[in-house]
Amino acid sequence: MLWKKQIPLAITFIMGLILGIQYFVPSSTSDWVFDEYRTWGIIIGLFGSVLAYISFYRAHGMRIKKKAPAWPFSVVAIAMSLAMAFVGFAFGREENTVFMNMYTYILVPIEGTMFSLLAFYISSAAYRAFRARSAQATALLVAAVIVMLGRVPLGEQISFWHKLWPALPTFTDIANWILNVPNMAAKRGMGLGIGLGIMMLSLKIVLGIERSYMGSGE
């Protein structure tokens, strides 16, 4: 119990205390503590990524071994990871190397297209969800439409009232105002709550009240 629970909790408390105090004591020692913690964190993270790689190969290896549904794709995933690592270590990672070409012509197109797919899905989801059932839902819908129109040249072109009376704002002006004023107020209100929440959670972790990060079991 001492080695498995109490000492780890003591490490959390001591580290929390040291890193918390160093912020309020501006000195070269504080800077050293902060820099060392960051370097140590990076080194621990390095080994953490090794753990991630082991999990990846183990999970896909198990799928291949058990001939799980669509297991050939696991072979693809493992083969591509080894191929990418090999070309990176063997031929370098400068411009126009196989490594950078694989990054530019495989990873970038796939990730870019995957993210762009979301435009179709959130638009169809919005069609179903954004019914103007109440005044507040209408406010959401109107704000979304104005911001979308204000982000494209079309918004500027269809703002016909602006041509009749230039003092009136265009869709772009209204979209910018929505983003910078009411949207800012909403985000700031939420941000304040999140900030206070982070502080409370951190305090609970340092004091050992919150222990879920340690995992279950002995």
Partner: peptide, 18 residues
């Protein structure tokens, strides 16, 4: 847990004032 506590404890300590 030793490594996790080191990282999480330090991170929590940093997060409070920041």
């Amino acid at each position: 847990r030793y490594a996790i506590c080191f990282s999480v404890g330090g991170g929590a300590g940093l997060a409070i004032p920041r």
